[in-house]
Design a protein around this nucleic acid. Structure first.
Length: 417
DNA sequence: TCTGGGGTCCTGCTGCTT
DNA sequence: TCTGAAGCAGCAGGACCC
């Protein structure tokens, strides 16, 4: 098999770049969800396929054949279908993605323990400790790509550089199925030739603001006085972009990742204007969030809700509790309290969400009983539900109000993802 | 065109405490 | 007792990322 390498603009494959000091690798699976799904649909390989679903869903991923028609991730499904009507649409299989992701992360761990996963399908690796054992960073990148292709049957792209953000841009340029090395002494010209939108942290709005300031390339940002950037973009963003524009990104690869919030939200198939129906969804979401908190042995102090109306305007409300909690019932009661306080009169609601913030480990947060809670209260009930779910499957036990009339399937109301 | 779900971070405002 | 400043926490909204 031949894998594309060293495709930095202006270079040829006979001119391998100097990867000395380029110890950061960014590895990104190519069209991960689509490639993974096609493992069980080999007859669709080479054809346009879109992963996504639902009336109001968006595209999770698409094969490169579908992307040629303009289909892109996060695009509304209705639009994707219009752009590429001949595409096969498949529902996502999150269990499969998690399994492949775990195997890929294991491959990374065989190279170095210094891994920072960003999502299921990408991670930063600091390979400085592996060079003596496995070879240069570019050699290690090539080995990783071959291993993932041979063992998982999917391709990935690798960016190699001395900083995280340059490695990330490089892997994007390498796609699909390629590798780009940005030598240390070429970082500044490499970064400064890029459009501003290539910078990490520049989305539509920031790009608009930068354009208004007359800045189109990273070089423009680099040569703009810092106070001007701060005035236009704010202290944090201004400083951050100025640093990146000079190739400076001192952030190391972080092995440990501590979650700061855990939440769940749900877009309804049709807008809902019945507060009792909203309460039922808040109960389901609180239940889901509570279960995830307890599984992660975390508690949270601030309960926040999100409400999105039919016109897509979105509001959030939050309440900080006296003590942290991991009890689904307490989360639910706080969430409904926040929702009821909005005083909505038959407003058409598209989405509701529940989130727990200010997380602390169970061990660090002595949990107190809810006010008026009996000795064997909601906490014990939650634990019993968690045990039943572990044994019989998620959703095997749930609040009676979530059991639809005539329903016998636990999956009716509870999302297993 | 018509916008998911899971997150993180930043900014501005308000109210409380010192 | 009153007032203003400073610091901080909480809250709300928004931008961004995958």
């Amino acid at each position: 098999m031949s894998r594309r390498q060293f495709s930095l603009p202006g270079r040829t494959s006979s001119d391998p770049p100097d990867d000395t000091g380029c110890t950061i690798l960014h590895v990104d699976m190519d069209a991960f969800y689509a490639s993974a799904t096609l493992l069980s649909h080999p007859e669709l390989v080479g054809t346009p396929v879109i992963i996504g679903g639902g009336n109001r869903g968006v595209v999770l991923s698409a094969t490169y054949e579908a992307r040629r028609y303009g289909v892109a991730s996060a695009m509304p499904m209705t639009r994707a279908r219009r752009l590429c009507p001949q595409a096969t649409v498949l529902a996502p299989d999150h269990r499969l993605y998690a399994a492949i992701s775990a195997a890929v992360m294991e491959t990374f761990r065989s190279v170095t323990p210094e891994i920072e996963p960003l999502s299921l399908d990408e991670a930063f690796l600091d390979v400085s400790g592996a060079i003596r054992r496995l070879g240069s960073p570019a050699t290690i990148g090539a080995q990783i790509r071959d291993t993932i292709h041979d063992e998982q049957g999917i391709t990935c792209s690798v960016g190699v550089s001395s900083t995280k953000f340059v490695a990330k841009i490089a892997s994007g340029l390498a796609k699909p199925d390629g590798m780009v090395v940005v030598p240390r002494d070429e970082v500044i010209p490499f970064v400064q030739q890029l459009p501003v939108a290539a910078l990490w942290g520049v989305g539509d709005k920031t790009e608009e603001q930068l354009t208004r300031l007359g800045l189109r390339t990273v070089a423009d940002i680099a040569h703009t006085p810092l106070p001007t950037l701060i005035r236009g973009l704010g202290e944090a963003t201004g400083t951050h972009l100025h640093e990146l524009a000079w190739g400076r990104d001192p952030r190391p690869v972080h092995r440990e990742h501590r979650e700061k919030s855990i939440g769940a939200d749900e877009t309804f198939e049709y807008d809902i204007d019945d507060p009792r129906e909203i309460h039922r969804h808040l109960l389901k979401l609180s239940d889901r969030v509570g279960a995830r908190l307890r599984a992660a042995r975390l508690t949270g102090r601030t309960v926040s809700i999100k409400v999105r109306f039919s016109d897509f305007t979105t509001i959030t409300r939050a309440r900080t509790l006296r003590e942290p909690t991991d009890t689904s019932r307490e989360i639910y009661e706080t969430a409904t309290g926040l929702f009821d306080a909005l005083g909505l009169q038959r407003a058409r609601i598209r989405l509701v969400g529940v989130r727990l913030e200010k997380l602390v480990a169970v061990e660090e947060a002595p949990i107190q009983g809810m006010l008026g809670e009996p000795d064997h209260g909601w906490r014990e009930a939650d634990r019993a539900i968690d045990r039943a779910s572990a044994r019989f499957g998620a959703g095997s036990v749930r609040p009676a109000s979530l059991i639809a009339r005539g329903s016998t399937s636990p999956s009716d109301d509870r999302d297993l993802s």
